[in-house]
Design a protein around this nucleic acid. Structure first.
Lengths: 112, 112
DNA sequence: TAACTTACACACAAAAAAGTTAGTAAAAAA
DNA sequence: TTTTTTACTAACTTTTTTGTGTGTAAGTTA
């Protein structure tokens, strides 16, 4: 009984962890933001130019979300015109090694 | 020139592969369908009972999508009441070993 | 005979994600 | 002086995703 109860709560915890993963990588652009940042620090406009197909609003919105998830951090400089830099947090950089697995998941399903 | 062109097309191919990955795992329920199937063959109603929070319509819809992606296959028996079984395809089973990486991505972001 | 079962389909509604367009501050460049 | 630049915000529309509720065939069970 004790064990099966613990199993249930572990399964639930696993669900939450997986949902958190989905929060981080799902969405049309999140993964590409992570890839384009990598180990670099980049300005907003620089990211914008690297991803010409995402709208400004959505890019900013996604950057905000990733910041509030703890994946990214941003630094604003009091200059005119404004300068804002984005980079992965330490935890965020921990995601990078796993992106290869994501590649391996989709690869076999390409020729359909 | 040749090299940089090839780089571009490889980057584009990578994007497509990643998007395919997202097709497979994103959505509120897809990952849990994969987890609940695992190496098993299960009837529709069995899945339904394992995931009480997903509506019938959405479950069927997601099963269909996963079938057309080549992740699942289904077998219908001509019985009454009807019996329909779902299982991962061979390619689909190839996803399972990578689910651990998905876990590792989200885990560090849980205590926020 | 009435009720129950299974694996759906269909019409519709609500919610979430993504996109479009216009506007802003304030300095520097033309 | 007008234009350009940067990194946004705000209002709004479109598209996609998810959910709700009802109906159905045709046997089995009560």
């Amino acid at each position: 009984m004790k064990d099966s109860n613990r199993d249930v709560t572990m399964a639930e915890r696993d669900q939450l962890v997986l949902r958190r993963t989905l929060d981080i990588i799902c969405g049309k652009w999140r993964l590409f933001i992570l890839l384009n940042l990598g180990e670099h620090t980049r300005r907003y406009g620089e990211l914008r130019r690297m991803m010409p197909d995402v709208s400004e609003k959505v890019l900013i919105q996604e950057l905000k979300s990733l910041i509030s998830l703890g994946v990214l951090e941003k630094e604003s400089f009091s200059e005119v015109p404004p300068r804002v830099e984005y980079r992965l947090t330490t935890k965020g950089r921990g995601i990078l090694p796993h992106l290869n697995s994501l590649h391996l998941i989709g690869a076999p399903f390409m020729e359909d």
